[in-house]
Every structure is written in C-alpha cells, then in structure tokens.
Simulated scan of single mutants.
Amino acid sequence: MGYDSLHAQARSAPPYLVAFVVVLLTAYASDRARTRSPYLIAHALISSAAYLAIAITGHFQDHISPGLSIFIRYVCVFPATAGFFSAITLIITWSMDNRVEKEGKGASIAILNVIGQCGPLLGTRLYPESDGPWYVRGMATCSFFMIVVAILALVLRILLQRENRAVANDEDHGTVDPGEEREELMGGGRRDDFERSGDQRLVYII
C-alpha cells in the first residue's frame, strides 16, 4: 500500500486486534445461542466479500485514486481477518461439539490440523512478487475458498438437521423409549454415562 516498513508494521496490528475481539464475541454469542453454523456461514461470507473487494479494487486500480484504493483495501482487511479467524474457531469448536467420545474429539482435532497445515502449501504460492502490489489473483482465490467454507457449512447444517429430525421422528412414532434420556451435545447431560452406554441417538449442534 506504499507505506514504509515502520508504518506498515504499525498498521498491521489493528486488524488482528479487532479480529481477537470479534472471535471472543462470536464464541460467546454462539455458545449462548447453542448453534455454530449461522455464525460460521455469516463470517465466511463477510470474509469472502472483503477479500473480493480487495481484489476488485486492485483490478480497477487504474480507475481509482491512490488514496481511495488504499483506504478501501485497508478497511477491508478488518472484516477479512476477523471473518477468517472466527470461521477457524467455529470450525474447530463445531467439530468437537458433535463428537461425544474423547477419541473422536482427538481425531477431529488431528484431522483439522493436518488439513489446515496444507494451507501454506497453497498460500505461499498465491502471492508471487509478479502479482504485486495488488495481488488480485491471491485475494480472489481467498474469496473463493471462503465461499466454499460457507457452502460446506450449509451442507453440514442440512445433514445434521436431517439427523436430528430422524431422531425426533423415531421418538414420535414410539421406536425410542420416551422415558430414556436423549443426549444433547454441547454440555447437555451426563457424558460419561452416555459414552459407556454406546447410545448414538444424538441431538447434533447445528
């Protein structure tokens, strides 16, 4: 954006500070609402829109004044960063929410980390020096993948809703003993008893 190294370092801090606060607020709100996917989808779409705005601004750089271009791109870094880190937090939490067994939680974290560490293999190639200083392709690619995150979250939400409806229908038709406790994930019942029983009639967090 044309800043010297000292000013560039100073301006890199505020987006991460805002992201830190947004992540905490999102975690608190999603816990209170006992749901993950709406927040995840919203943050992914917001981040995608911000990355896209940065890419479009860079693409039409010749038709925008330098001051306006810098302003748009810098302002968009805030929602792009906050949405990205909030999405990561929600993905990890959502994965653990819907696994009762300790082994399942551990496996979920391991798989997420393996997949997540593949990101730098692509990320380091998204911003070649030849694309500078606007890096339109890199920003557009980030925007696309945040859209993919939102789509996958929506698909998972639909699948989990179907599973929850199937459990509810079984209870309504008497195939499940209504006197039996049905386990809700995300802090809803006696997890130790549930794990020992092997009962898999879960109410998934969506």
Rank of each mutant, 00 (worst) to 15 (best):
A110W: 05
S86N: 13
T57W: 13
D31N: 08
W94Y: 09
D31K: 04
S30Y: 02
L6V: 12
R201W: 00
A44M: 07
M1C: 14
S197Y: 03
V22W: 15
L160P: 14
G106E: 04
G116N: 06
I109K: 00
S130L: 09
L154Y: 14
H59D: 09
G123L: 02
Q9L: 12
M146F: 14
A107T: 01
V148N: 07
N113C: 00
I151S: 06
A153I: 07
A168I: 10
G187C: 04
R125W: 09
L185H: 10
I46K: 02
L185F: 13
D177E: 02
L156F: 11
I41K: 09
K102Q: 00
I109N: 12
T89E: 04
P15Y: 01
L17T: 06
D199Y: 11
A29K: 14
V136F: 06
L24R: 03
P133T: 03
D97G: 08
F145S: 01
Q200D: 13
G67V: 11
S95N: 02
G58M: 04
R162K: 13
G58R: 06
I70E: 14
P66L: 05
E103T: 09
A87V: 10
G58T: 07
L152V: 09
C76M: 13
L185S: 11
V23K: 00
Q200V: 08
S197T: 10
R196I: 10
G123Y: 02
F145Y: 11
R125L: 10
G188V: 02
E180G: 09
T89N: 07
P79I: 11
L126I: 02
P15R: 10
C76K: 06
A80E: 09
R196E: 11
H7R: 05
T57P: 12
F20V: 01
V176E: 03
M139R: 12
P178N: 03
L6W: 11
W134T: 09
S65H: 15
L24P: 00
G132H: 10
G198K: 05
D31L: 02
S48G: 11
A19W: 05
A107N: 06
S108P: 01
F78I: 07
E171Y: 11
I92Y: 15
G2E: 11
R99S: 06
M186S: 14
S12R: 01
